[in-house]
């Protein structure tokens, strides 16, 4: 599918090549390949335990893959530490919120500006103009991204005091403040109510309009089918489909993965209807 790209010029933004990851004897990812172009939205779906989050962790440097390569604009980033991957323009959110709970909401988003503001120890000790400028810029940017995600809650209080849905927004704002070229969202709509999901969908679209490519892990099929240009389906660590949403939705292997081998025809039809219905509901 993806031939190994050598040249940086025409290389896709992200290309994952024959990625394998095993924990001891357990194969978590077994030969995953996909690419993400600039400003493209690609969803990675699959049943629980299919290896989606593990794939994210390999891309972002949290896991070192057993074999295979992760390339960013043709550059091999396999095995770099997460902060180095982040420095190259990749930001992520976590499946179960990982905010800095005791710190203010603004501080959380300031984390995204960490690599951009220039300041050394002496600036900090002497409060030089450069220190003040850096702090001011960091704060302005934090406010900007909180506005962008539409945070309604208190920005000055600790992040843990916000309602769950608001915390999700803060996490996205924090990732956006990194000003990434590639954003990996791990179940951004999990635990959100219907209205919040619609807002998340809108937010994802607006992020893409900024020119940011998005890789999305999500269980809400309506959202996935609605927003993605391409869908990659994983099952037991294996990639079973990669294509546009309409195509993937009809793929018999995908339906089987979601429903099991012994489902009779009626059930499969029912499932098809509901998957399609999810799309219609969102459209």
């Amino acid at each position: 599918m993806n031939s190994t790209v050598k040249s940086t010029a025409n290389a896709p933004l992200l290309s994952v090549e024959d990625l394998r990851l095993s924990f001891g004897g357990v194969l978590a990812i077994d030969g995953l390949s996909f690419g993400v172009g600039e400003a493209e939205i690609v969803s990675v779906i699959g049943p629980n335990g299919a290896g989606k989050t593990s794939a994210f962790n390999c891309v972002t440097g949290f896991y070192r893959p057993t074999a295979g390569a992760v390339r960013l604009r043709g550059r091999d980033i396999t095995g770099l530490r997460p902060s180095a991957v982040a420095a190259l323009g990749v930001a992520r959110t976590f499946q179960n919120l990982r905010l800095f709970g005791e710190m203010s909401v603004l501080d959380n988003v300031r984390a995204g500006t960490h690599l951009r503001i220039r300041q050394n120890v002496f600036d900090a000790l002497l409060h030089t103009p450069r220190y003040r400028r850096g702090e001011r810029e960091s704060t302005e940017q934090a406010h900007h991204w909180l506005d962008f995600v539409g945070l309604r809650g208190d920005r000055y209080g600790p992040a843990r005091a916000l309602p769950y849905g608001e915390q999700r927004r803060v996490e996205i704002a924090r990732a956006l403040a990194r000003e990434p070229d590639l954003l990996l969202l791990d179940e951004p709509a999990a635990g959100l109510n219907h209205g919040e999901k619609a807002e998340t969908l809108d937010l994802i679209r607006r992020v893409r309009e900024l020119g940011v490519a998005i890789v999305l892990i999500e269980h809400d099929m309506g959202l996935v089918m609605d927003v993605s240009q391409r869908v990659v389906v994983l099952n037991f660590g294996r990639e079973i489909a990669d294509g546009p949403p309409d195509e993937v939705r009809r793929d018999p292997e995908v339906v089987e993965a979601y429903l099991g081998r012994d489902a009779d025809e009626a059930e499969i039809e029912e499932a098809r209807a509901s998957v399609a219905g999810g799309r219609d509901g969102g459209a």
Partner: peptide, 17 residues
């Protein structure tokens, strides 16, 4: 403090923990 609160999240934001 990012490190204190969540080392992994800090790394993901580019902080060399």
């Amino acid at each position: 403090r990012f490190v204190r609160e969540d080392e992994d999240a800090a790394e993901a934001m580019g902080v060399h923990t």
